[in-house]
Each structure stands twice: as C-alpha cells, then as structure tokens.
Nucleic acid binder design. Structure first.
Lengths: 111, 111
DNA sequence: TTCGTTAATCGTATATTTGCGATATAAGAT
DNA sequence: ATCTTATATCGCAAATATACGATTAACGAA
C-alpha cells in the first residue's frame, strides 16, 4: 500500500528533488524573475503581472517560502518578498554537483 | 474556469519548469545516478536498487525519456537506457542562466 | 512451439497540486 | 470607529502525479 515513498530515498536526493519541485511551475519561475527585476521587494505587483488570481499567487509565494528560496516580511498592510540568495547558491551547488558527479563516472554514452 | 494555466507563461519559463519537474522526484534523481554509476546502460538493475515496483520504475523512466534527459533503445528482450548529456547541458545552461540573470538585476537583498 | 525473462502498458486507488472565490486578518487612513 | 487596501487562509473542484498488481508484448532458449 504505502504511498508517497519519497522518504525511502537518501537526503541528498530528497533535497535536490524538493528544490526542483519548487521551481517546477512556470508561475514560480516568473515570480522569481519579477522579484529580481524590481529592485524593491514588491508583492502585490506580482499579481498584476501574472495571469493568476491573487489567492493563487499567494499560494505559490508560500511554496517558494517553504522551500526557502525567498524570504518574506510583513511591512504594514503589505508583504515584502525577496530572493534568498544563500539558499539559491546552496541549491545551485547541489544541482551542478549532480551533473559533475554523473559526468565523472560516465564519460561516454553507450546507447 | 480554465485549469492548468501553464501555457500562459513564456517558453523559457515553461522549458525550465518542465526540466525541473522531471527531476522533482527523488526516484528520478536516483535513477540518473544509477544510470551513471554503471557504465553499461542497464535497466532492470534499476528496479533492484530502487524501493519501487517494476511498473513504477518504468513509469519514471518514461517521464525522464519524455523530458529528453535520457535515451532508451530496445536491446532484445530488454531495454537500454542512458543519460542524454546534450539535453543535460542545455538545461544546465538554462538553469544557471536563471541565477545569473537574477543576480545581475538585483545585487543586494532588500528584506 | 512453448516457456521463461524483461519491460511496457492498462486499470485503478490514493495523494498532491493547481486554481478560484469567499472570507478573514491586519494596518493605515478618514 | 469605520473604511480601504493588501494579503493570507479556507473550502472546494478539477487535474496530475504516484504507486501497484495484472496483463500484454517481444524476444531468446529449450
């Protein structure tokens, strides 16, 4: 029975998979781009740019926050989001290390 | 109404999201590692190593193949899979270019 | 031909994701 | 205190993803 067997894989695999999942939707990539383009960590502006309802955008922001890719602070009646570069660096390293490890082990294609 | 609004985002966002989705499950990352470790493009061996049923592994392989990350050829009664390095390079470039673009635009955190 | 091996696919159950409108919350403005 | 604005959260519906067992297909060997 036992569904979602994700726990049975090692932590490195899980960590990278979780990160990939966070950016596995175009809306979330678009959000990251918006956050970076505007030098101020706006938030409601994202809703205007994306073809999604406010509640949906809020949900995507939450997922990015849970994944640690962005930080969010409450600023009066509005929220301020920005990219967490440290987390990005970490995951970027994990990601490229995957490729590197693979490439070292297997240089030539066999099929 | 209109669900899955993914089409409304630009192709770059969609392409990167699709790649991220392909590696957004630890089983698929594990498969990539197995494919690389063994210098031969085994296939049934993956089933032995992973804590998943044969049909499930086959499904994950299919997804990786659809995403273009691996190639598969039929070799007698068995299938031979291997990593598509070209696709990997392409997506690796897309991925790092995302970070680079973001970093150029926004050097300092604001919250 | 029949049997065994290997892997893909089908059917199905369950879980998760995506999306929206409605509602709640929180703070500044009037 | 009330109104407005901004955002989070709730509740729900639909779509996808994950997993498995059973079946099918394709081939080599007996």
């Amino acid at each position: 029975m036992a569904f979602h067997k994700k726990e049975e894989f090692n932590s490195k695999e899980q960590s990278l998979a979780a990160f990939a999942k966070a950016i596995s939707h175009p809306a979330r990539i678009a959000i990251l781009n918006v956050l970076a383009k505007k030098n101020e960590c706006i938030c409601g502006d994202i809703v205007e740019v994306l073809p999604l309802a406010q509640s949906t955008v809020s949900q995507h922001l939450k997922e990015l926050k849970i994944a640690g890719l962005i930080d969010g602070t409450i600023d009066g009646p509005r929220s301020c989001y920005c990219i967490n570069w440290k987390a990005f660096e970490k995951f970027n390293a994990e990601f490229t290390s995957l490729f590197t490890n693979l490439k070292i082990k297997n240089e030539k294609a066999c099929c």
